[in-house]
Design a protein around this nucleic acid. Structure first.
Length: 212
DNA sequence: CTCCAGGGGGCCA
DNA sequence: TGGCCCCATGGA
């Protein structure tokens, strides 16, 4: 049966329920989490976020006032802490350059994506995650789980972020909230259904062919 | 012990 | 562009 990308989203939502992504209490927490989770298990990130919440409550000025060793100690469990600590500082410095005002950033002439990509330690996926969950830019995150899903569906066998990102785009049927939910569904599907097939029934996606 | 997570940068062809 | 290596921790 041929279905659209939006219908795929609806089917996943009906079978898996709302994933309520991104799990965080503030936008600054989302930004830090997006950096810390790079090639790192989320369980490790949760510990670091807990440390940082106690230290800074994710206030921009308090994050910036942390010295490097304190920041590294707080995020150590998330790995790659030398680069991630620097990236966090640069990103929040970028926010401060806009008076820590997200609305000002959204009105910027330069695209948010390009500004984020210019920061060392922020690549395509992290930039798109921050765009989607912090700056309300409806976008599809074509991460490894998305690549696996479309391969699993027999649609494409793409193992490149840019290739899939160019190929997949969310039409008007997707609201901003749909886009956020879709990414959560794809990741959770990948974590549970593609890796532990014996634990769950994956059949709800069997037999569908996506037309883009 | 090995493998790898909700990546990214540098380098090289 | 695309492949390879490195970055680092903790859980399975």
């Amino acid at each position: 049966m041929e279905i659209s990308l939006y219908q795929l989203y609806r089917i996943m939502l009906e079978n898996m329920g709302h994933q309520k992504w991104w799990p965080a209490e503030s936008e600054n927490e989302i930004i830090v989490g997006a950096i810390l989770v790079q090639n790192t298990n989320w369980n490790n990130v949760v510990k670091s976020l807990s440390n940082l919440k106690k230290l800074t409550d994710f206030k921009t000025d308090r994050i910036m006032s942390l010295d490097e060793s304190s920041l590294i100690d707080a995020i150590r469990q998330s790995g790659f802490y030398h680069q991630k600590s620097k990236t966090i500082k640069v990103v929040f410095n970028w926010l401060i350059s806009y008076s820590d005002d997200h609305e000002l950033i959204k009105k910027s002439i330069i695209t948010i994506r390009n500004q984020l990509l210019s920061i060392k330690g922020i690549g395509h996926e992290t930039a798109d995650a921050i765009r989607l969950y912090v700056f309300d830019e409806k976008t599809f995150i074509s991460d490894r789980y998305a690549q696996k899903l479309f391969s699993y569906l027999g649609l494409l066998d793409i193992n490149s972020y840019n290739k899939l990102n160019r190929y997949i785009q969310l039409n008007e049927e997707f609201s901003l909230e749909d886009a956020k939910e879709f990414h959560g569904l794809i990741v959770e599907f990948g974590k549970v259904y593609l890796k532990n097939k014996e634990l769950f029934d994956t059949s709800f996606l069997v037999g569908y062919k996506i037309t883009i």
